[in-house]
């Protein structure tokens, strides 16, 4: 269901603490929007305000152009999946899934039919008659998802739904959740502090920090073109270098502590902050290198190795193939993919 949801700066203060103060966004209809941020960035409060479980101090929330800011949560028709499942312990699996239909006055047979369909969608129809304490954490989260979907909500809100699960289970459920949400084409808002979840599930990604939106865009846009040093370092790993852009003989050049690089026309002159990701620095043969450095440490990560290379006074994070991992103390030649350099606004 392509519900259009719009947050017009809903604000929330708890005493002197400001939880959310600058969040205006039109959520892509029929798509998944991931809200990513560190603890205390206001992402869960934002979700709770959209769900109607927290009253905003100001601003508004619109659904299909209608202001629902003061509409009680129970009248919004939003499905909500909680981090801790929040299943009703006194009801069986199928009774939990039926709950939203029961309070809407659906008859027993229709309730059972829809609940069975929802349980099939999450692949646990065989658990219908189990008690909640008789099923595993992963199964409980499937029940929570089935319960939120069974009454055909016009918007699905997910608050860190996989964070209580172990890594392997989380990976499997993440893939399945992505497939199901894409099949349903439901407008969904997915709050998480896990970058992989956010980037792999979200058609759109919002990075929050200190109660406000730091950057919004597609995951690829945000990852490759972060607008601030915070986004650059929060989403993935990044080397932040201080440099200066100078115009010399009609060409713009970026001076870094260990080398100079040509920059495209239109790059503003002056001191700047430069981001380069570890995967965009390569260890190359000496003849192809732009600069040299000394390996300070290397960490084997399975599919690759992460090196720390000292160059020009900077400790650069560099990704290397795990086939020939340089040992600490080794001198290496390095090359930066110029097109991947990103000049960022300075943060004061």
């Amino acid at each position: 269901m392509n519900t259009l949801v719009e947050a017009n700066n809903p604000r929330k203060h708890y005493g002197t603490v400001t939880a959310v103060h600058d969040f205006s966004h039109r959520f892509a209809p029929g798509k998944i929007t991931a809200i990513l941020g560190p603890s205390g960035s206001g992402k869960s409060t934002t979700l709770a305000m959209i769900a109607g479980l927290v009253d905003p101090d100001g601003g508004s929330v619109l659904v299909n152009e209608i202001d629902i800011t003061r509409l009680p949560a129970e009248r919004r028709d939003f499905g909500l999946v909680f981090q801790n499942y929040s299943l009703f312990p006194h009801l069986s699996v199928v009774e939990n899934v039926e709950f939203g239909l029961r309070v809407r006055g659906f008859g027993r047979s229709e309730r059972r039919r829809r609940a069975s369909l929802a349980l099939e969608q999450v692949h646990i129809p065989h658990l219908a008659n189990r008690r909640i304490h008789q099923i595993s954490g992963g199964e409980q989260q499937r029940v929570a998802l089935a319960r939120a979907l069974a009454f055909a909500p016009r918007l699905l809100l997910l608050d860190e739904p996989l964070s209580a699960l172990d890594a392997k289970l989380r990976e499997g459920l993440r893939t399945e959740l992505g497939r199901l949400l894409n099949e349903l084409s439901l407008t969904a808002i997915y709050v998480t502090h896990d970058q992989i979840e956010a980037m792999s599930l979200g058609h759109e990604l919002i990075i929050m920090r200190g109660g406000r939106i730091e950057q919004a865009g597609t995951p690829i846009e945000v990852y490759t073109r972060p607008s601030t040093p915070f986004v650059a370092t929060f989403l993935g790993s990044a080397n932040l270098l201080d440099g200066e852009c100078l115009r010399v003989n009609g060409q713009t050049r970026l001076l870094l502590p260990f080398m100079a690089l040509p920059m495209p026309e239109g790059t503003p002159s002056g001191p700047c902050r430069v981001m380069v990701r570890p995967e965009d620095i390569s260890i190359v043969a000496d003849d192809d290198g732009q600069f040299r450095g000394e390996v300070a440490s290397s960490v084997f990560l399975g599919h690759q190795a992460r090196l720390t290379v000292i160059a020009g006074g900077y400790a650069l994070a560099v990704d290397a193939s795990n086939e020939a991992i340089p040992l600490p103390g080794a001198a290496v030649s390095l090359r930066i993919r110029n097109e991947k350099l990103r000049i960022l606004a300075r943060e004061d």
């Binding site: 109607g52 479980l53 129970e74 909500l80 009703f88 009454f151």
Partner: peptide, 20 residues
């Protein structure tokens, strides 16, 4: 937490009281 879950599922105050 259970009350919030019930609210999100559409339960009114009396329904939350008697069903949850």
């Amino acid at each position: 937490r259970l009350e919030s879950a019930a609210r999100s599922l559409g339960a009114s105050l009396p329904q939350r009281l008697f069903l949850v």
